[in-house]
Design a protein around this nucleic acid. Structure first.
Lengths: 132, 132
DNA sequence: ATTGACCTTCCAGTAGGTGTAAGGTCTATG
DNA sequence: CATAGACCTTACACCTACTGGAAGGTCAAT
């Protein structure tokens, strides 16, 4: 199967698949006689796995670890769980940071009149002078 | 005032200040006789403004627009408000996306036993085959 | 004179791709 | 059989927002 078919099925783009190969996240695909990459069922399983892991929020490096666990029959589910718990923590931290930003932005919006005048609480707030 | 003093006061690093100058987010600083950058009160106001805008979550390009409004006495506060409302929307979209990830991760964590066995609901879930 | 802390510029690397160019291949149609 | 269009290949540049490091100039104190 050619790369664009594999891309369609896995939900990745051909470019992304070549990129993953280049950074050695996935093994080099075997080649047809004409030099085209050729994908089989097992390759597709791996591509789909990576696509799901990425869209669940895992970084490429985290995907590397998940893939290695996926392919290791000697794994312990505790290792996997630990990895996912760490990721969960990171995501929650990110959410907290964004919520902080959201609150700041919301307050700025309510304080700005949004009219024709130049006076603007948002600008004033960002320009605020500190005593030092 | 030298760059490291300006950096300390504004909360940016010297590297970042030079970077902002290079990408023309801020005007080139004037130079002392020895070629060192020299910052005055007005420069500091601008550096602080950018620092606050960045840490509130605005991208460099958004900061460029905010700075231009900040420096334009003919501005209408409605323009500023619109910009901030757009940003608020982007932040809320990002939060929603991360919350979706968080929910997925949470569910994965609860479903994985986290023991010595290889069987793992997380791996199974990421490896899940679709009918197509 | 030397040391250490500044300052300067320039180049490279980070994450996770995407865009584009230059060229080879395959398939269908006239 | 030629050619068009849709594939495929590689390689390089670009994106965001910096940060690190090298190589070299300057300044203040000892």
């Amino acid at each position: 199967m050619n790369i664009s078919q594999a891309a369609k099925i896995s939900g990745l783009s051909p470019k992304t698949i070549r990129y993953y190969e280049r950074i050695q996240l996935i093994d080099p695909a075997s080649r047809s006689e004409n030099g085209y990459r050729d994908y089989n069922h097992k390759d597709l399983d791996i591509l789909r796995f990576v696509q799901r892991a990425r869209s669940t929020g895992f970084s490429v490096e985290e995907c590397r670890q998940l893939l290695s666990l996926y392919q290791n029959p000697e794994r312990h589910s505790s290792e996997v769980k630990e990895l996912v718990q760490e990721k969960l923590q990171k995501v929650e931290d990110q959410i907290a940071e964004l919520e902080h930003m959201r609150n700041t932005l919301k307050e700025l919006v309510t304080r700005c009149p949004g009219d024709e005048a130049a006076q603007c609480a948002i600008i004033d707030s960002l320009a605020e002078k500190e005593e030092h």
